[in-house]
């Protein structure tokens, strides 16, 4: 069993009570269907077209559990980032994971939170290195990572009260 199947299986326990997502692997269609239509679940992506293998969308409260599973499978954290979907009044937080060994499997975990109340649990207890990534995301999007030990601006000035990567930010 290769690592992609293994990861998918391990993560699918999170979605046990949900119907399995429709196999939406065709890119063209995926593009036309706006991402907001997409429900929670795991998508297997075409690596050559997308650059990653597994695409997991989940609820914010499932995040810690999913990251724990991913950590135990030996993934390392590449980055955390946000995307501002202003039309849907949502912020998406994207976690990129990759592996050190030759079982190539890039896994993307994404979750959406309302723009008005951007709160997410921190994953620093699992991945210590998430600290800076979360601080950066906090800087740029104003997303509050609950439980983060030191959530002060990292790249922006200490007294910055603006979030430049929000789409309604005007310099």
């Amino acid at each position: 069993m290769n690592i992609q199947d293994k990861t998918r299986e391990a993560l699918s326990t999170l979605f046990a009570d949900m119907p399995s997502p429709e196999p939406e692997t065709d890119d063209g269609e995926e593009g036309e269907e706006k991402p907001e239509i997409r429900g929670n679940g795991i998508l297997e992506q075409d690596y050559h077209a997308k650059g990653f293998h597994l695409d997991v969308q989940l609820e914010p409260n499932q995040l810690i559990e999913a990251v724990r599973i991913i950590y135990d499978l030996g993934y390392y954290l590449e980055s955390i980032t946000g995307v501002d979907w202003i039309k849907e009044e949502q912020l998406e937080v994207v976690y990129d994971f990759s592996r050190y060994d030759f079982d190539l499997c890039r896994t993307v975990v994404r979750t959406r939170i309302p723009r008005t109340e951007p709160h997410l649990p921190t994953i620093t207890p699992i991945y210590t290195g998430a600290s800076w990534h979360e601080r950066e995301t906090h800087d740029f999007f104003g997303i509050v990572f609950d439980g983060h030990p030191h959530l002060v601006p990292l790249l922006l000035p200490e007294d910055a009260d603006f979030h430049p990567l929000l789409k309604d930010f005007k310099a």
Binding site: G74, Y76, L77, Y100, Y127, T128, G129
Partner: peptide, 8 residues
């Protein structure tokens, strides 16, 4: 440590 911090 590398895994936790994502060192490459």
């Amino acid at each position: 440590m590398c895994q936790r911090y994502g060192a490459t």
